[in-house]
Each structure stands twice: as C-alpha cells, then as structure tokens.
Nucleic acid binder design. Structure first.
Length: 315
DNA sequence: CTCGATCCCTGGACGC
DNA sequence: TGCGTCCAGGGATCGA
C-alpha cells in the first residue's frame, strides 16, 4: 500500500513525465472517490500541470491557467489550483497512450496535449481525488501533521508527550505525522525496539529520539529503493519497488527476528495488523499477540515461505 | 482524548 | 475446477 516512500516514488516519476503538459480534457468512470466530480470536470481542462509534489501520502499536481488560452471565463476559479490524489490501498496513476483501452478499474483519465492520457486506476477505490482551490488546499495542509523526514526532535517529542494512545496509533495518525502507514510504522518500531502497543506517553526521551531517527532513516532508505511493492504497488512507470526485501518486521510473522532469532509475532494494534519481535520489543502487560497460525509453527529446517511479498494472508 | 465498531471495495487465499 | 467465505487496509464517522 502506498505510504510516503511509494508516493514519493510516484511523484518523481510523474514529475518527469507530465510537468509542463496541458490537460485537454477529463474523462471519468466511477466517481465515488472524487470529492466533487462536477467541479473537477469543469475546472481541470485547459490547465497546465506546473509541478508535481508529494505532501504526506498525497500527490499534488499544481495546475495553472495558461494566459490567453481562452475558456478562462468559464472557470470558477482562475487562480492556481491543485489536483489532489491519494492512492489509498490500490491506486495507481501514470500516463498511457490514448489509444490503449482503459483497464478494468481505471476511473479517471486526463488527456494531455501531447496525446497521452494520465490515468488513475484503483480497484478498491479507497483512494481520493479532488480539485482543490488554494483555500481548500490550505485546509488540507492545516490538518496534516509533521513531515517525518523533517520533524525535529523537539517537535516530535511535543507531539508525543502526554498522549495516552498507543505509539503505533500515533505514528499512523496523519495529523501527527504525515505519510507513515502500517508498513513503515512497524519497521520503525522494530528498529527502535519499541512495542507498537506501548502507550506513547510512557516513552522516554531516548526512545522517542530513537524512533524519530528510525523512521527517518527507514523512509529515506525506502525512497532510495523506490518503495515497497507488497501487493500491487507500481510507480508511475509501472515499475515495482525494492524495499519489501528489506522489511525486518512487516509481513514476517512466524519468521526469525534478524536481531535475536525470536519468532516474529503479529497482533492487532490500532485496528491494524502489527508485526513485532516479542523479545526485542517488550510486550506491554495485557497485550496479547495472535496465536501463530498452525502452518507457521516451527518444524525444523527450511522455512517454507512463498515468494517474498506474497505471504499467505496479510497482504 | 481514545477506543472499538462499521462502512467503503475488490481480489486473492483458503476450505471443501 | 468451482464456489462460498473470510480478510486485508486508509480513512471517515459514530457512539461509548
């Protein structure tokens, strides 16, 4: 599922492919993931894609009017605006040849002035798309948390201190940190040796700083490896990432911890599957891990995992 | 503030 | 081989 590194990877790909192109027309399929389809349909055509940015897990295509290209009078908003795209769980976006037929779950197409069509495809439609005026964009930005790549030790402490929620819930809270999702939360907690169910307010400074450095380093490394392709993440050019090969906790239930050889376990924290090492990441009292599925119980040698990133259930 | 439950949605894994 | 069932998860929402 696309989290910060995956979205960053997509943003970079899109940037070199579509910046400077003008959107000629818009074609929509199912629209239940679009904030206001009519407004989007009415305002996007005619605009130039000035830049592509990532904000947390959002992609932001900055759209500007081209001077003297007419049609301006019909637009409700002539100022700069943005097309916001959230990939949800299964969203993909990238340019295709216009002649190529839409895939089964393609729901939006933006015809570009070079003949290609920028397409959004998302089987589950957990994603989101919206045409945002500067004002609406400011609202989105306003409720977002800190950038995990930039947040200072002090600010992170401030956002964590005194909170009674479990640390993983806070890492996943986009209003605390923007861009961290289930995979990178688990990876960061494993690195910092902190159990996902630990109450955030009980972490000491050292643990908080270890966690901050942990997610920063992990996210940077994951970006360098073009993200993690677990189920079906593909970037703007249809290429999978590599970071899933480096996961230390996520998706490793029943396998040996790379630090201490204990068996990685899984539990539900903040309503999400959470993978952790019960030895390196001391389990809080009253928290119980899920029983290890029978098939994973230690036989003797040869671990029988399937394709990496293609494990049984959780993905 | 924080929790759990529920919903959205589809494909893939699993059991028979 | 085929079919029914369960489950995953980001995020919004609602009630406790």
């Amino acid at each position: 599922m696309p989290e910060l590194p995956e979205v960053e990877t997509v943003a970079r790909g899109l940037r070199e492919q579509i910046v400077g192109r003008r959107i000629v027309s818009v074609r929509l399929g199912k629209t239940d993931f679009i904030d206001d389809p009519a407004v989007l349909e009415r305002n996007v055509p005619g605009r130039l894609i000035e830049s592509v940015e990532r904000f947390g897990k959002f992609l932001l295509l900055r759209l500007v009017m081209i001077p003297d290209v007419g049609a301006a009078a019909e637009l409700e908003d002539e100022a700069a605006a943005s097309l916001l795209v959230h990939l949800g769980m299964t969203g993909q976006i990238g340019p295709s040849a216009e002649a190529q037929p839409w895939e089964k779950h393609t729901h939006a197409g933006f015809l570009l002035d070079d003949g290609r069509e920028l397409r959004y495809t998302d089987p589950r439609r957990f994603g989101r798309m919206a045409y945002l005026t500067a004002e609406l964009l400011a609202r989105e930005v306003g409720r977002a948390g800190a950038d995990p790549l930039e947040v200072s030790a002090e600010e992170f402490v401030r956002r964590i201190r005194g909170r009674n929620a479990r640390i993983k819930a806070l890492l996943l809270d986009q209003g605390v940190l923007r861009g961290v999702g289930n995979i990178y939360a688990d990876e960061s907690l494993w690195k910092a040796k902190i159990h996902p169910a630990k109450v955030a307010g009980k972490l000491n400074r050292k643990e908080i700083e270890s966690l901050r450095k942990g997610f920063k380093e992990i996210l940077e490394k994951a970006i360098a490896m073009r993200g993690s392709s677990i189920s079906d993440f593909l970037d703007a050019t249809g290429t999978p990432g590599e970071y899933q090969r480096h996961h230390k906790a996520y998706g490793r239930e029943g396998e040996a911890c790379y630090r201490c050889k204990s068996t990685i376990r899984r539990g539900i924290v903040a309503g999400r599957s959470s993978f952790f090492c019960p030895k390196c990441q001391p389990v809080p009292r009253k928290f119980s891990a899920l029983p290890l599925p029978v098939r994973m119980r230690k036989t003797k040698g040869a671990k029988k995992r399937i394709t990496p990133g293609k494990r049984k259930r959780n993905l």
